[in-house]
């Protein structure tokens, strides 16, 4: 994974709550066995509506997307994150995220920024009214800036921040604990089930 530290640019205002991963990428596109190429199918059903925000050329090239609470609910499909990345988006701002989706975003290096409802509403209105207005998400200082004087800090798990800033391989990090895993396995009860062929 590439290191992630700062995302700056326009923001797409997706003013909906509980946006589920079936909307972000419909199941029929999950048949592919690659990690890339999902961007063109992202939000397919909603994009059929010419007024849908992603069809507005004013937001072209925006690296940030703002949505309402419980963003990414439903299916665990990581394809949803790959689809969002396929749109060129690398930071998401919402009052809350669904747990699995948030983990998946972290795995893919997409920043998830939780802000208070009123701050999300303010950023949403600003992005709707002035599509060119830029937002800056800075991981190192854990802040979001939007124009002069508007600055909010956000929380992030220290482990996630550490890994994102350095672009570390999650599996590689865990493999450093090999001795602990072996010790754990030695102490595991022999009664526990296995699926080994009989």
């Amino acid at each position: 994974m590439d290191p992630v530290s700062r995302v700056v640019g326009k923001a797409i205002p997706l003013n909906r709550a509980n946006v589920d991963t079936d909307q972000i990428i419909p199941a029929k596109y999950l048949k592919r066995i690659e990690r890339t190429g999902y961007g063109p199918f992202a939000f397919e059903a909603w994009r059929a509506d010419p007024d849908f925000v992603l069809n507005n050329p004013a937001y072209e090239g925006a690296p940030i997307l703002i949505a309402q609470q419980n963003l990414g609910s439903g299916s665990s499909r990581e394809h949803a994150v790959w689809a969002i990345q396929g749109l060129g988006v690398s930071a998401l701002i919402a009052p809350s995220f669904a747990d699995i989706f948030k983990n998946n975003c972290f795995q893919g290096g997409v920043l998830t920024v939780e802000l208070a409802q009123e701050d999300v509403d303010w950023l949403m209105a600003r992005a709707e009214e002035t599509p060119d207005a830029e937002i800056e998400v800075d991981l190192e200082s854990q802040t979001v800036r939007a124009g002069p004087g508007w600055e909010r800090s956000f929380e992030i798990d220290a482990f996630r921040k550490y890994r994102l800033l350095r672009g570390l391989d999650d599996i590689g990090m865990t493999l450093e604990y090999e001795a602990d895993v072996e010790r754990f396995e030695e102490a595991r009860s022999p009664l526990l089930p296995t699926v080994a062929a009989d």
Binding site: I100, N104, E185
Partner: peptide, 29 residues
């Protein structure tokens, strides 16, 4: 995501994404 089903047995069961699937395959953790 519906791995939670197995919780009916008093197991701690939860859904993960594909990167985490790879992590579990490689490390069992």
């Amino acid at each position: 995501s519906h791995t939670s089903t197995h919780g009916a047995f008093g197991a701690l069961a939860f859904g993960i994404g594909t990167s985490e699937v790879e992590h579990v395959l490689a490390t069992q953790t």
